Amino acid sequence: MAVQLDDQLMDILACPADHAPLRVGTAADPAADVLTCTACGLRYPVVDGIPVLLADEALPAEAAADGAGA
């Protein structure tokens, strides 16, 4: 299921690692339950509709053309 967050909330959320804006989903899966940093690519899980914006909980950036996923 795709993440559904209020547009105003998405306007203020930022990556805790480099303060860049976040986008919903990933390049490979726009419906993924994660928020992806537009700069560094770290993926932050969304659990029960709540973004977990902790650097320690972030998933690594996706490999470009690797095809390997977490």
Rank of each mutant, 00 (worst) to 15 (best):
L9K: 08
M10V: 07
M10H: 10
D11C: 09
D11I: 03
L13V: 07
L13T: 06
A14D: 01
A14S: 12
C15M: 05
C15H: 05
C15Y: 10
A17N: 15
A17K: 07
D18F: 07
D18N: 15
H19W: 08
P21F: 04
L22G: 04
L22K: 06
R23L: 11
R23H: 14
V24K: 07
G25Y: 07
T26Y: 07
A27Q: 13
A27Y: 05
A27K: 06
A28K: 07
A28V: 15
D29E: 14
P30T: 02
A31S: 13
A32F: 02
V34D: 06
V34A: 10
V34G: 00
L35K: 06
L35R: 04
C37H: 02
T38L: 11
T38A: 01
A39G: 09
A39W: 05
C40K: 08
C40L: 07
C40A: 09
C40N: 14
C40Y: 11
G41K: 00
G41V: 04
L42N: 04
L42F: 07
R43S: 03
Y44N: 05
P45T: 08
P45I: 10
V46N: 01
D48R: 12
D48H: 14
D48L: 09
G49M: 11
G49V: 12
I50L: 15
I50Y: 10
P51L: 10
P51I: 05
V52Q: 13
L53P: 12
L53S: 10
L54T: 08
L54Y: 06
L54K: 11
L54M: 15
A55S: 15
D56E: 15
D56N: 08
E57I: 10
A58D: 12
A58E: 05
A58W: 02
A58L: 10
L59E: 03
A61S: 14
A63N: 04
A64F: 06
A64I: 10
A65I: 03
A65N: 09
A65W: 04
G67Q: 12
G67T: 05
A68T: 15
A68K: 09
A68M: 02
G69A: 15
G69L: 13
G69N: 07
G69F: 03
G69K: 14
A70P: 08
A70H: 04
